[in-house]
């Protein structure tokens, strides 16, 4: 029996191990980039979730990794794994890597999402940023995004700028809409995202895509998963 919260080694600054009940632990990281470095370390050196190791599932967050365990948290393998994660190098591949706060480079070509930029909040977003709507579109399409983590709904990815095409940070709407259409492309905080299906939502809507973000009968069921890169393209609809 080993308590993973005892005798934690001096880890990378900003990282902490936090309790989360009898069947999980939460690894808090310095920021999103650090969380991705720890996730890379977990995938590189830790037992794969599909294997027989102590981790049944990893749930990435904005600066955390939730490890759902298939063993109890007092399993020595959990303490060994979490000690390894807290001390894993902060930047797995330094050369040419992105700056602090950005997401590391993901492999593979970016997912392209064609958008009609005719969202109901496009003018409001432009006003908030002090630019015209065309500049909002230019910045949105000029940014390479990375899926930071999922949640909210199946197939939804919280997208963060990997290489910025210009400032796009705006607050959520004061009052959420009761019905946002499927395929709506939105902004909130420094995130962008695409609603996989209709439902309530408070993000600022700047456009809409016809791409299917989530299909439970498809393989893979989700177009976006953490680590994937995304580019939006302008379909040039009237605006």
């Amino acid at each position: 029996m080993t308590d993973p919260f005892r005798a934690v080694p001096a880890g990378v600054p900003g990282r902490r191990l936090l309790p989360c009940g009898d069947e999980a632990v939460l690894v808090e990281c310095a920021d999103l980039a650090d969380a991705r470095a720890v996730l890379a370390a977990l995938e590189r050196t830790g037992p794969a979730p599909a294997g027989g190791g102590p981790v049944a599932e990893v749930v990435p967050g904005a600066r955390t990794l939730l490890l759902r365990l298939r063993t109890g948290i007092d399993d020595p393998a959990v303490a060994a794994l979490t000690a390894r994660l807290l001390t894993a190098p902060a930047t797995p591949d330094d050369a040419g890597g992105p700056g602090r706060g950005a997401a590391p480079t993901a492999v593979g070509a970016p997912v392209e999402i064609p958008v009609r930029y005719d969202g109901e909040d496009l003018a409001a977003v432009a006003a908030l940023l002090g630019v015209d709507p065309a500049e909002v579109v230019r910045r949105h399409t000029g940014t390479v995004w990375t899926v930071a983590f999922g949640g909210f709904a199946p197939g939804f990815g919280y997208l963060v700028p990997q290489t910025s095409g210009g400032h796009l940070t705006v607050p959520r709407r004061d009052s959420p809409r009761t019905a946002v259409p499927a395929g709506a492309v939105g902004l909130a905080g420094s995130y962008s995202g695409v609603y996989p299906r209709s439902g309530p939502g408070g993000w600022q809507l700047i456009g809409r895509t016809d791409l299917v973000l989530f299909d439970p009968d498809a393989d893979p069921p989700a177009l976006l998963r953490p680590g994937a890169r995304v580019r939006f393209t302008d379909l040039g609809a009237a605006r």
């Binding site: 599932e57 990435p60 999922g150 996989p196």
Partner: peptide, 9 residues
């Protein structure tokens, strides 16, 4: 459906 949290399930 354990194991699909990363894609929001």
């Amino acid at each position: 459906r354990p194991g699909l949290a990363a894609i929001g399930v």
